[in-house]
């Protein structure tokens, strides 16, 4: 593609991604903005001041809850997905097709049904309205994605590297830590990122299982949006997308130059 046309398409993509955010940014700094004005009639930091001081504690707590829940969910998802992905990517076994269908079920079945169904069980198990319960329901959505990512990673993984390392004197445990892990690290990062972001954006399942007791950022965001204060909702929304942006930048920088090409 020519440089000019690449720039053209790049700006289209940038605009579709960026424009919705622009209106969020405008709203968060608007004091007064009524129809049919194109720009806010009065600018101000009221919304930002509100979420940093008046509701600051609430927002910070919600961010903390969200970070903890998403991080724990991502960690558990990766710990399970690595052996699962290895089994699926490296070996052929009976029932592999069934496993892949089962893995897509939580993605195919509407989240509402999953959350409602699990709620009854979680009440019985004493997991309703607890962090463990929320992490559990998030895992039902995050785990399949993490497993699919690592399935793909292990499908392209050459186990001869491990044999080579063992022949060179590395024990089984050392091979895992010093050879397998570094080789699949890009895949693990992607899987963890996926799981983290998916958990980060869960609203419905958090609300149902957490019963309002576990207030993550999306739960707070919906509450604020319900109150009709648009500038505040816009400011919280921007806080909400921040980790996704950071993650995107991180992955682009970090994973981009970790190509394994040419060494297999």
């Amino acid at each position: 593609m020519k440089k000019s046309s690449r720039r053209f398409f790049g700006s289209i993509v940038g605009a579709t991604v960026g424009l919705p955010f622009l209106s969020l940014v405008l709203w968060s700094f608007a004091e007064r903005w009524f129809y049919p004005a194109l720009w806010p009639q009065a600018w101000g930091l009221r919304a930002w001041r509100y979420i940093t001081s008046t509701a600051g504690f609430q927002v910070m707590t919600a961010i903390g809850h969200s970070v903890v829940v998403a991080a724990v969910t991502a960690a558990i998802a990766v710990v399970i997905a690595v052996p699962a992905g290895r089994a699926l990517g490296q070996y052929d076994f009976k029932g592999k097709d069934l496993v892949s269908v089962l893995l897509t079920l939580p993605i195919i079945v509407p989240p509402l049904c999953v959350a409602m169904g699990l709620h009854l069980w979680f009440i019985r198990l004493g997991l309703a309205e607890t962090y463990a319960g929320v992490i559990g329901v998030h895992l039902t959505f995050c785990l399949p994605y993490a497993i699919f990512v690592l399935w793909g990673v292990f499908a392209n993984y050459n186990p001869d590297f491990e044999d080579q390392a063992r022949s060179l004197g590395a024990s089984r445990a050392v091979v895992m830590a010093r050879v397998m892990l570094p080789m699949i690290l890009p895949g693990i990062s992607v899987a963890a990122l996926f799981a983290f972001l998916l958990s980060w954006s869960q609203y419905l399942s958090t609300l149902i299982i957490g019963g309002g007791r576990v207030t993550t950022l999306p739960v707070l965001l919906f509450a604020l949006m319900g109150s009709g204060d648009r500038p505040v909702a816009a400011a919280v929304s921007l806080v909400f997308v921040a980790p996704a942006f950071i993650a995107l930048l991180f992955s682009a920088r970090h994973l981009g130059n970790r190509s394994l090409a040419g060494v297999r």
């Binding site: 001869d160 044999d163 080579q164 390392a165 394994l260 060494v263």
Partner: peptide, 10 residues
Amino acid sequence: MVFQKPLLFP
């Protein structure tokens, strides 16, 4: 053992 492919740790 030295394998058919170099299998150098990337």
